[in-house]
Design a binder for these strands. Structure first.
Lengths: 251, 251
DNA sequence: GCTTATTGAGAACACTGTTCTGAAGACGTG
DNA sequence: CACGTCTTCAGAACAGTGTTCTCAATAAGC
């Protein structure tokens, strides 16, 4: 359907230009793209729970029913928001020598995009990248896994494990962020101190591991924890790759 | 707070017995436990989206406002449902020799409990096991990881990776199940055939890996895929464990 | 300029979580 | 047995939700 996004819908726009000359409020036509744009600004401002069709309509200065001419339902709107996630995603060609870094970089970018909009992980979590525009991404990921030399069965689930970790991690981050918002803790360091204080106050004889590790669970930033989790998964995948014997002698 | 659940609330019940003799409908008193029970039957029947306070009240033959005397909000009700997940969860003592099987078994049980109620994974996903009753579980998990010989920093995130995979996987299963329900595909094999047919119909020149691997992504049951994903993660964790040099000579 | 088809507005429906007001029941005390 | 008290439930109400309906106004084609 939609291909390069903004082009096909706004391309034939020039005809409207002349009606702009009127002193009426110009009435720039409603398109699905503008609706999705507005939905994102509402999402960033109000969060997922505040994202309602009425809010989106209000953001556009339009009646609710007008939205339904371009979008069949709220679910479909969320689907379009989800598709935007992949819009400018890099898809490197498989490079068997550096597959680990390729996968990690893909995951890092994915997390960054998930974190760019508030509660975006919640939307992502509820969808599956099996629409026509999104299939190239899973195809390319599979290509990287297979080129790395993993058995087919492992390559087939590797994407599952990776995307599950990716979305789950970002989702958890979203949740803590929302929790912080409700707690009215201004800074995040402040929030982290609260959490750490809670764990430090636990009886050490009942929760010895929890109290000794609480530092590492929260002191290190989320970035470090994400990177470590990524490494765990990549190591696990690598363990399935048999070293090539047929290669040249050089190790 | 609540300890062995059903005991403390229903223990002092005898006094009601005599009022049973009346021909009035007996009016068994409303408790939080009964509300949570009713919520589960509503969840199983209507799914997460159909789980409303009014439905729960109707299930109990009671007015909505009556619920709010025992439960502060719907969120709190969901929290209590979440806590039930861990009620009869095994917590084995750390056994460094068999930590891999211990972790896998824990995850298997977790998935089984998540799948026991419809859409339960969605509820689980939105909560975090940091309430007093649930902390012993993460404590025990950490104990197993550390006893296995993983570095502290790895042990601290291992639980994250594992639970993220666990909940994410079950969540995805829930989603497919709901999708099947909406598609009115009676059997699940039927649903799987539909999905496989979709992938097999893709142009092989654009999606070579997708079409060749589609069989492995769906033919193998979810159990096999879950087991493999679990193995990937456990292998990754194991890769951080340094072999003990100080041990006895026997390997 | 007129007709036709699209587009947005407004009201409405059936819901949702939550709160408020009363009434009816069970309890402890005379 | 009778009284006041105090918890517990019922019912209505409020503000909000996604979605659909009807109808007026606007733009496009001839």
């Amino acid at each position: 359907m939609s291909r390069s996004r903004r082009d096909d819908q706004t391309m034939p726009a020039p005809p409207w230009e002349r009606s702009r000359k009127r002193d009426a409020p110009a009435r720039v036509p409603l398109t699905r793209e503008r609706i999705v744009d507005a939905a994102f600004t509402v999402l960033d401002r109000e969060g997922y729970d505040g994202l309602s069709m009425r809010q989106v309509a209000a953001e556009l200065g339009v009646a609710v029913s007008a939205l339904y001419a371009h979008v069949a339902s709220k679910d479909e709107l969320l689907e379009h928001m989800y598709s935007r996630l992949f819009d400018d995603q890099e898809l490197p060609d498989p490079d068997p020598e550096h597959w680990q870094e390729q996968i990690k970089e893909y995951a890092r970018q994915g997390r960054a995009r998930l974190l760019r909009h508030r509660d975006m992980a919640r939307i992502s979590m509820a969808h599956v990248p099996f629409t026509p525009e999104l299939l190239p991404h899973v195809e390319r990921l599979l290509a990287i896994f297979r080129a790395a030399g993993m058995p087919d069965r492992v390559a087939a689930t590797a994407g599952d494990v990776l995307s599950t970790f990716l979305e789950g991690f970002a989702f958890e981050e979203s949740m803590w962020e929302e929790r912080r918002r409700n707690t009215k803790a201004g800074n995040w360091d402040e929030m982290r101190d609260t959490i750490k204080g809670y764990f430090d106050a636990l009886p050490p004889e009942r929760f010895p591991n929890l109290v000794t590790l609480s530092g590492m669970m929260f002191d290190d930033g989320n970035d470090a924890r994400f990177e470590l989790g990524l490494d765990i998964i990549v190591r696990g995948l690598a363990s399935y790759i048999e070293p090539k014997d047929a290669g040249p002698a050089s190790g």
